[in-house]
Design a protein around this nucleic acid. Structure first.
Length: 936
RNA sequence: GGGCGCGUAGCUCAGCGGGAGAGCACUACGUUGACAUCGUAGGGGUCGCUGGUUCGAUCCCAGCCGCGCCCA
């Protein structure tokens, strides 16, 4: 039965994937024939997420490595799993409830709401897995893990307890980045700096007790009548002095003013030097606040006087700490002003009714109202337009509020030391190396990591509080109870901390947790440290650095030395659209990998991504490339179809090293070179080079030349040549299938099955180890020469407008018996591929013949009458011109004494050879030009 | 402001010290029994600019111009 003309990816891919699964082909250790392991943990996608281009790239690369190593006989584990993605998932479920008109999260309460989340997870949790399967991912699904699964959940709590007991986790009242939309703390990394057009408002705060001072002024412009403005350090000598009973502070956030506790100035600022230690009266609140000297005040910025609001600004928080200032929080968790019943605010203040009326206003409403009041009451000094960066929550997209709360922190600095050392001394290596800099930079400047989140979906912090607030941190409630009883001497009621952990806290222990830690499982012993982590650069901080910190802290070898979670980190690029823009839903430039798979097949999508995955570069995805690689799959398909139609069957007795025909010896050598190139490229994570080598071999070598050159033999008479070529052809195509399989698993597996009955599926076929034993320079030279001859004839025919259907004679003019033998031996295929009718040998080119120069030989095509002599002369002259330029360049180089003296010998020799060959060819061309000239 | 990276054919990209490459697009021709998701031939590039190092620079170094990204 003849094969179809094309591969039907749509129906074949699911069938093939099902066969792999049924056979347990992805199981850890499947096809292992050697002791070495190769393990990868998947970067866990969001359990309720769906596959985007980033996933497609990331998992294609992992799958290529996994399949390659599996075929090589390594004990491979590709560990899959999903992440619970705290904020993102909670957000999705809340939105869904709202859209369906169901009770809100608050109305439901914690327990009921979490049921809804689990429900949603059950509904949509398999989507991403199904999508990864469509891509062809060969993960060991039997080991799939989810960060909220029981075992993994326990591991997370144990890590928390372990770090707590080691003094590396602590509770502290500090300013954190607060997301007023989700009403939770977030870490520094979850904050995006957004450039925003805003304003710098100047506010006048009155000096207490009727105090006044002289403020230096300068004239704006020439002459005594020019208007005065406040002096700044850039101005030189002041022009005048102004008696003031107030100090002007500049702020971008007037709404925080009710929480001001001081005004800071630079200690040596001439404007304010004498005011240090004096007091101001804060408008609206009527609270006396000191003027103090602090390095935070920059005389060149604003007015040089800066209001200090420790509970609402990170810099001010530090100033407050240095000066022992109170911290007055004037907002609630949704960033509304909170004044009524706010003891910190009311203490030592006498707020006006207008001030108290601000209670409950949203921060932006409050800003507007405060500015109105300031203007009406005469303490608004002015406003300057300004562009400044405002921190926003990366999920909520609202401005985050520095907020004073109790949170749990990880002493990241302590954990960072070993994580830095492990990369510095090469226990873990980044590819490309340049990302190590990014990693170092972040870890060297690391801040305490806020790990508590005021969310419900996640791992609840394993801390229980006694009646007097004493915390008991234990892995379970029972253990906490026991600890409390020991502490109080009697059983007491305990209350668990309501907060959950940052999602990245749990993903930080992904490599060890998925392998069974804290149990001492065989998998943990066998596959940890993992071989390589494949990930995007955008989560080096979030994830890679944290896995390093946690892995090194908890995993030790027999000698107690810290064990890295992975030996290599391959960092790939972001997939952008073809103009280089980041894909985003709002821009509308998102390409859905599943749409591409539907249209072109998973193999084409995978091959495209692999081809474009050059290290250290972004991927700009052009859909046209995908179509091109779909065509490539079709090309391969048809080469196999051709082989099948001509009775090429894999022959176990065929030994490529013992092939007799130069053609078959040549393809064996080409195949061995391919094997070497692909292995070398994949070993270095040069996916694009491996893909490029495969493409060039399959299309440019096998299809364009090997198949074409084999045709005369395969369609010719039966005999030894035909038998050998049939076996060699089957072998050559099998080798292509094997080496292409990691990149295009579906079409190759389908062909593997169609070509012959096999012992094993292709996914478990043995990766070849062909080397130099298959290379034959004589065969390479002969086939290369024939190819050059055919290309030369074709080129002349096209240029001379010889009709493709016309068969023409070929005459060998010089080159001797060797050239003649070469041509005679391959005459059937030369005739076929170059459309040659007869072959002859002559001492000189016949009149009116077109001349073709080859390495060591000269042939001509007697086309007198067929061709235009003038055109032929022009063609030859053009070629000659090009050659002469090359010769001139080479001669110049070779007559340069410095070059001869300093260039490496082999380079000099190479240039000499090139010159000789060029002169040789030029001589023949000159003769041809002369003959053509006679005809004109 | 600090750091990283990128400017190579019309487009998307490889190459990164000794002969400018691929795919797509383009032009011409083609039903040679695997394939029109194809074949054959061809056009197209002062390798961003300016200096420097070198016998030799698209490749190394410096500066500049343009474009990204990360951190403050």
């Amino acid at each position: 039965m003849t094969m179809d003309k094309t591969f039907d990816a749509k129906t074949a891919e699911p069938e093939i994937y099902a066969r792999w699964e049924e056979a347990g082909a992805f199981r850890a250790g499947a096809n292992a024939s050697r002791p070495e392991t190769f393990s990868i943990v998947i970067p866990p996608p969001n359990v309720t997420g769906s596959l985007h281009m980033g996933h497609a790239l990331n998992n294609t690369l992992q799958d290529i490595l996994a399949r390659w190593k599996r075929m090589q006989g390594f004990d491979v584990l590709w560990q899959p799993g999903q992440d619970h993605a705290g904020i993102a998932t909670q957000m999705v479920v809340e939105r869904k409830l709202a859209a369906e008109g169901q009770p809100s999260r608050r109305e439901l309460g914690r327990e009921k709401f979490l049921e809804k989340v689990w429900e949603w997870k059950r509904e949509s949790g398999d989507t991403i897995i199904r999508q990864l399967k469509r891509l062809g991912a060969s993960c060991d699904w039997s080991r799939n893990r989810f960060t909220m699964d029981e075992g993994f959940h326990d591991a997370v709590l144990r890590v928390f307890v372990g770090l707590y007991k080691a003094g590396l986790i602590y509770r502290d009242k500090r300013l954190v980045n607060w997301d007023p939309h989700f009403e939770t703390a977030i870490s520094d990394l979850e904050v995006e700096q957004v450039e925003t057009r805003g304003a710098l408002w100047r506010l006048r705060y009155k000096l207490a007790d009727g105090l006044t001072y002289r403020h230096p002024m300068v004239r704006e412009g020439e002459g005594p009548d020019a208007p005065l403005r406040g002096w700044t350090p850039a101005d030189g000598a002041p022009d005048a002095w102004e008696e003031r009973d107030y100090v002007v502070v500049a702020t971008t956030r007037p709404e925080t003013m009710l929480g001001d506790v001081a005004v800071a100035v630079s200690a040596d600022d001439p404007r304010y030097r004498d005011l240090i230690g004096k007091e101001l009266v804060l408008p609206l609140a009527n609270r006396r606040i000191p003027i103090l000297a602090d390095q935070h005040a920059d005389p060149t910025k604003g007015t040089g006087a800066v209001k200090i609001t420790p509970a609402h600004d990170f810099n001010d928080f530090e100033v407050g700490r240095r000066h022992g200032l109170p911290m007055i929080n004037v907002m609630d968790t949704r960033a509304r002003l909170a004044l009524e019943g706010n003891e910190d605010f009311l203490r030592a203040a006498a707020p006006t009714p207008e001030a108290m009326a601000l209670h409950g206003l949203d921060r932006y409403e409050a800003r507007k109202r405060i500015l109105e009041l300031a203007e009406a009451q005469g303490w608004l000094d002015g406003r300057d337009e300004e562009v400044h960066v405002v921190p926003h929550g990366d999920r909520s997209k609202v401005a985050v509020e520095p907020f004073l709360t109790d949170q749990w922190f990880v002493d990241a600095k302590a954990l960072a030391a070993e994580a830095l050392a492990a990369v510095r001394d090469g226990r873990t290596v980044f590819h490309p190396r340049s990302w190590e800099k990014t990693y170092f930079q972040w870890l060297e400047n690391i801040e305490p990591w806020c790990v508590s989140r005021q969310l419900w979906w996640g791992h609840r912090i394993p801390v229980w509080y006694g009646p007097d607030g004493t915390p008991f941190c234990e892995a379970s409630e029972d253990e906490a109870r026991a600890a409390a009883e020991a502490h109080y001497g009697r059983p007491v009621a305990l209350e668990r901390d309501p907060d959950v952990l940052d999602t990245w806290f749990s993903s930080g222990l992904w490599p060890m947790g998925t392998l069974g830690w804290p149990e001492d499982t065989p998998e943990l012993r066998r596959y940890y440290p993992t071989s390589v982590l494949v990930t995007g650069f955008d989560i080096i901080f979030f994830w890679v650095a944290r896995m390093m910190m946690m892995g090194l802290h908890f995993m030790k070898d027999a000698q107690g030395r810290p064990q890295v979670p992975f030996r290599d980190v391959y960092v790939h690029a972001l997939v952008r659209d073809e103009k280089g823009k980041k894909m985003s839903k709002s821009v509308g430039n998102v390409i859905d990998p599943l749409d591409l798979i539907d249209e072109y097949g998973a193999d084409a999508v995978r091959f495209t991504l692999a081809s474009m995955a050059a290290m250290g570069r972004d991927i700009k995805l052009a859909v046209g490339r995908v179509a091109g690689y779909r065509n490539f799959a079709t090309k391969l398909w048809n080469a196999a179809r051709f082989a099948q139609m001509h009775g090429c069957k894999p022959d176990p007795a065929f030994d490529p090293a013992a092939a007799r025909l130069p053609l078959n010896r040549w393809i064996a050598g080409e195949t061995a070179r391919l094997r070497r190139d692909v292995d070398a490229a994949l070993s270095d994570y040069r996916f694009n080079d491996a893909a490029g080598a495969l493409y060039a071999h399959v299309w440019g070598v096998v299809c364009d030349w090997y198949v074409e050159m084999a045709k005369p033999i395969l369609t010719g008479p039966d005999g030894a040549d035909k038998d050998e070529t049939r076996a060699a052809m089957a072998w050559a195509i099998d080798q292509c299938l094997i080496m292409l399989h990691p990149f295009m698993p579906f079409v190759t597996e389908a062909l593997w099955g169609q070509i012959a009955p096999r012992d094993k599926m292709l996914i478990h076929a043995d990766w070849p180890a062909w080397g130099a034993e298959l290379e034959d320079p004589a065969a390479d030279a002969e086939i290369g020469w024939i190819i050059a001859l055919i290309e030369g004839v074709r080129s002349v025919r096209a240029e001379m407008n010889v009709p493709p259907s016309a068969k023409i004679p070929l005459t060998l003019v010089s080159g001797g018996p060797e050239a003649e033998a070469r041509i005679r031996k391959s005459l059937p295929l030369i005739s076929r591929l170059a459309r040659i009718e007869t072959f002859s040998v002559a001492d000189a080119a016949p009149r009116g013949a077109v001349t073709l120069t080859l390495e060591g030989a000269e042939v001509c095509l007697p086309l007198a009458g067929v061709i235009d002599a003038g055109k032929e002369k022009a063609r030859l002259e053009k070629a000659l011109d090009k050659l002469r330029k090359e010769i001139a360049g080479l001669e110049k180089k070779l007559s340069n004494q410095s070059f001869l003296a300093k260039a490496p010998e082999e380079v000099v020799a190479e240039q000499r050879e090139r010159l000789e060959a060029a002169r040789d060819e030029a001589a023949r061309l000159e003769g041809a030009v002369a003959r053509a000239a006679q005809m004109v």
